[in-house]
Design a binder for these strands. Sequence first.
DNA 1: ACCTGAACACCGTTCAAGT
DNA 2: ACCTGAACACCGTTCAAGT
Lengths: 203, 203
Amino acid sequence: MARMPVRPYHHGDLRSALLVSAERTLLEKGVAALSLRELARDVGVSHAAPGRHFKDKQALLDALALAGFERLAKELHTADAHGLPLEARLTQLAQAYVHFAVTNAELLEVMYTRKHDADIDERLRAAVDGTTTHFVQIVADAQERGEMIPGEPWTIAFVLGAALHGTASFAAQGTLTPEAAVAGIPALVHHLLNGLKPRENEQ
Amino acid sequence: MARMPVRPYHHGDLRSALLVSAERTLLEKGVAALSLRELARDVGVSHAAPGRHFKDKQALLDALALAGFERLAKELHTADAHGLPLEARLTQLAQAYVHFAVTNAELLEVMYTRKHDADIDERLRAAVDGTTTHFVQIVADAQERGEMIPGEPWTIAFVLGAALHGTASFAAQGTLTPEAAVAGIPALVHHLLNGLKPRENEQ
DNA sequence: ACCTGAACACCGTTCAAGT
DNA sequence: ACCTGAACACCGTTCAAGT
């Protein structure tokens, strides 16, 4: 009476099972606690099995980073309300980014580690470029409507990007509480748009 | 004929020798390549010797982070030319920060890792608070001279801090070349001060 | 094609013992 | 007070062999 084996010899989709388990570990215990051997144990395969799907540990981290960038891109896209006035629109985008940063702090660290394989680098660059282009496009459109100053859209977008990235990093790091980070966004965006120098009759 | 032993039993100042060697490794090979055992080998002591001076690897990283923050604070202080007009002054400070980031990219990563011991946390917080206060003070002074908009100095300083931190992170990560990062600073500061919205006769 | 088991060369950390 | 040497429990990676 042969029963279905609880765990067949072939896992079926070990690769994605490892990624899912890895992201869970990342969320619960952090990057430092991520080991291929433990991952293999969690998933119920031998410690050498992951080697079939990821040439080394960095390859797994690269895959996690890529998935992270793709998810971030999607969340930003979803958060982008085209109809809203510029300031409200940017505020919403910024909040989405910071929200991602605080709920995926450890993943963000993996994403921002500049040790990526040449192979994945291309796909990664594509994902990053996607969101970059998104921001640049928003700026270009705003410029066309006269809602932003003229000049290289990329240069303008960089100001927004840097400020957002900085805020997200502070939040992910714990320099700011998640609540404080999100709560500070509207003022941040307002100041970015209106400047820190007084607006009227200055010498 | 007893010679002076090349390496006496007591190292003399093993603690700082380890830190010096660690920072060298950080610069040349990155955090990932930093191992206590290799450090011990480099310095010429047994692999267990570091344990006398650092309770674990994290303690050594904490010490590196602390030293990093203190050095950054000093460099920012040196770069701060009080006499300069506001925009030039901020530009110079920003360039100093980004310069530190690109020449100490791996150290920056250690500094920004939010896994610090409670003991060192106090001293670390002091170092970070020092530079934070520095920036807040610059803002408060500028406000008094009417060169910055009114409002919580901390909130205003946060805009500058986030943008700078973001730029520094991009630079340290390699998203930007060091040259591009430094070259972009003047425009960044200008836009932060003047805002991204057109200045005159809007709606 | 995919996985296992053993093997290798590394880790960090601890602890009795040496100086 | 400071360091060593051995020991322990982990790693990542490789590779013949199994299914």
